[in-house]
Nucleic acid binder design. Structure first.
Lengths: 213, 213
DNA sequence: GAGTGTGAATTTCTTCACAGCT
DNA sequence: AGCTGTGAAGAAATTCACACTC
């Protein structure tokens, strides 16, 4: 049972995994924390320390076996299984998400899409049938839902999330530009372009042409 | 000249600003760090400390004047002006971004969109003409570009970024699921759904039904 | 010889606690 | 009386540095 892993560590693991997969594609067998760190702009010590929370994966003098470490990280991150996801909100962004080919290779299966607009309900988009949001309770009763992806307008996001939580969903990837208010034990990750942009403008603010760091 | 502001602080400011705007909409005149912190699940001390990096905005015994603090944060974050942005990649995601109504109220003006697919070049989407990526040099010569939003496939992202950097763009919001390799002085913020999902599955991994925190 | 794993040192970030202003 | 702003304390994260293993 994972006990006391700092959040920042968990946040870095997927990036390590991605770099390792790339190395594997390039038929690299072993990689040192130094080499990996160079690729990712992370110090070698950080990589070693991060991994040490989970076990001992390296070989002294050699580094890490790429394939083995991929397998281990897959298991640590829970990527050695399928995750059932649903999408709520089938507007322009929702459609882009449905059609996004990146989820399925990682084990994320989009099992259903929901919208409240009767215009779009009943349509099949990129192979997924769009259901009415009022069908959510029935669907969650009969189907496993591990993660809900929210692509609804800001004003609807909280209500939709509340509804999903009531129906047993406790993990969200939200594209809505508002902070969702959720009870303890519900996990939310937010992808908010506005927050990201506003953070950038701070650094851009008084730097016409480079060199503000 | 802003000197030594921790990154984490800058990352929180936009969330404060957002909450303050909401309070302003509700005609709240003054807010204490305690009240604001409660809304955002942040400790009052953190808010006070964060703001103290930039000046003294509060009134003892009263808290912060909401309107005034909004104005100050707007200025601190550089949101008291227009920012010229361009979009590269007009696929499904790119179209969603072009149509997203959230950017313009924050002062982000999408001045052009680019794609390499001749099918879409020349089309006007949500009022923005799509140009060919080969027009980027000419465009950047004649127009200010503060931030480029990348919505291109992973395999194209690095090349597109390199090209833009050569043409003087040094700030990116990237939706591509790869870590962009950029020279010093170029700022990249990445919105990567896969990384976010993989972080979540770690916490979900061995918790069927809540309580893993 | 090369590179891990890890306590210890260091740096960074957060919280405390209170003097001082309104 | 109430709440800010901030040094100082405390906690967390990162980096160092080296004993140890392959």
């Amino acid at each position: 049972m994972a006990v006391d892993i700092p959040d920042v560590v968990v946040r870095r693991l997927p990036t390590y995994l991605r770099a390792l997969r790339q190395l594997a594609d390039d038929n690299v067998d072993f990689v040192s924390s130094h080499q990996l760190g160079e690729r990712l702009h992370v110090t070698p010590a950080q990589i070693r320390k991060d991994l040490s929370y989970f076990g001992r994966f390296g070989k002294q003098g050699r580094g890490y076996n790429v394939q083995l470490l991929i397998t281990d990280l897959d298991q640590i991150l829970g990527l050695d299984r399928e995750w059932e996801t649903i999408l709520v909100g089938v507007g322009r962004l929702g459609r882009a998400i449905i059609g996004y080919p990146g989820f399925s290779p990682e084990g994320f299966n989009l099992s259903a899409a929901f919208d409240s607009d009767s215009e779009v309900v009943g349509q099949e988009i990129s192979g997924t049938l769009v259901r009415h949001t009022s069908d959510i309770p029935l669907f969650t009763q009969n189907n496993r839902v591990d993660i809900a992806i929210l692509a609804v307008p800001a004003r609807a996001a909280q209500l939709v999330a509340d509804d999903l939580i009531r129906n047993g969903v406790h993990s969200f990837l939200s594209y809505a530009p508002i902070p969702l208010e959720v009870p303890r034990g519900v996990y939310v990750r937010s992808l908010d372009p506005i927050l990201a942009m506003e953070e950038m403008t701070f650094y851009l603010r008084d730097s016409e042409r480079g060199g503000w760091k």
